Amino acid sequence: MDFDRNFMNVPVQSSDYTKNFLQKDSNPTTMEVVTRTNTVKSPTNSPETTKLVYTVKEVAQMLAISQRAAYNLCNSTTEFRVLRVGGSIRVPKDSFDAWINRAA
């Protein structure tokens, strides 16, 4: 196919049917205030909340092993409980901590 290259380089033109310009606010503090007021805080983000489960990545970091080795451990162990939620794997903190204390 032969395309007309000049036709393809035409800038896109749009028309504003309201003929009003959008207000641009370059003041980051205003934007921060708007963002802060519209966000909903999760109760799990507070420092007082204790973790109930570990991710596989956290297990790998605590044991100083690769993430792949941690997945293999979670898939093959009966020493601690492993929860599968959808496609995710979570390890209950109490079960994992008890296993670590027994092994140490």
Rank of each mutant, 00 (worst) to 15 (best):
D2T: 10
D2Y: 09
D2H: 10
D4R: 10
N6I: 02
N6H: 09
F7I: 02
N9P: 00
V10E: 09
V10C: 01
P11N: 04
V12A: 01
Q13A: 03
S14K: 04
S14G: 07
D16M: 00
D16S: 08
Y17G: 03
Y17S: 04
T18F: 00
K19P: 00
F21Q: 10
F21N: 10
F21D: 13
L22K: 13
L22W: 06
Q23L: 13
D25C: 06
D25A: 06
S26R: 08
N27L: 03
N27F: 08
N27C: 09
P28E: 11
T30H: 14
T30N: 15
M31R: 15
M31E: 15
E32L: 15
E32N: 13
E32Y: 11
E32T: 08
E32D: 10
V33S: 10
T35E: 13
T35S: 13
T37N: 13
T37S: 14
N38Q: 15
N38M: 12
T39F: 09
T39D: 05
K41H: 11
K41D: 14
S42H: 12
S46T: 05
E48Y: 10
K51S: 09
L52T: 12
L52N: 11
V53H: 11
K57R: 14
K57C: 02
E58S: 08
E58V: 00
V59N: 02
V59A: 02
V59Q: 05
A60I: 01
A60Y: 02
A60R: 03
A60M: 06
Q61W: 02
L63Y: 04
I65T: 03
I65S: 07
I65Y: 07
R68M: 06
R68I: 01
A69K: 14
A70N: 00
A70Y: 01
A70G: 00
Y71F: 15
Y71I: 03
N72H: 08
L73Q: 08
C74K: 01
N75T: 02
S76Q: 15
S76Y: 02
T78A: 12
E79V: 13
F80T: 04
R81E: 15
R81P: 00
R81K: 15
V82H: 09
L83Y: 11
L83T: 04
V85E: 14
V85F: 11
G87F: 08
S88E: 10
I89V: 12
I89S: 08
I89C: 08
V91M: 07
V91K: 00
P92M: 08
P92E: 07
S95H: 03
S95A: 08
F96E: 00
D97R: 03
D97V: 03
W99N: 06
W99V: 01
I100H: 02
N101R: 14
R102M: 05
A103S: 14
A104P: 01
A104R: 15
A104S: 11
